[in-house]
Amino acid sequence: MLTLTTATYDAIVAHARRDHPDEACGVVAGPEGSDRPVRVIEMLNAARSPTFYEFDSADLLQLYKEMAANDEEPVVIYHSHTATEAYPSRTDISLASEPNAHYVLVSTREQDSVEFRSYRILDGVVTEEPVQVVAALD
């Protein structure tokens, strides 16, 4: 299960809405091994595409250096699908490379409702998990 705060949930959805119709992407970092997503880091989609996202390579290095310095890891890796459902595509599955991360997909295809779903993606196998939104993390 993915547990995150309302503030984090809202920040991810707002980012996805803002970048629509391009895909938005980012990370929620947390202390290593804690499974607590606490720090939302919006990333630029270097592909600037409605069907693809990729962190810029220099931004990616900066992000991982920053997380290493803080003893953090990417607890959540999120991106949006802007015309399709919030389910990992074949591309998402083949490129997933953080075994400990919750992969969050947000679909912004509907203007007045949002689909927010979370998955584990390990060795090509997708497992959906419940999402619990709380006022504050324990």
Binding site: M43, S49, P50, T51, Y53, L60, I77, H79, H81, T91
Partner: peptide, 12 residues
Amino acid sequence: VTILPAVAGGAA
């Protein structure tokens, strides 16, 4: 030397 997998994907 740092090795990092790209963080990438998308609906396509």
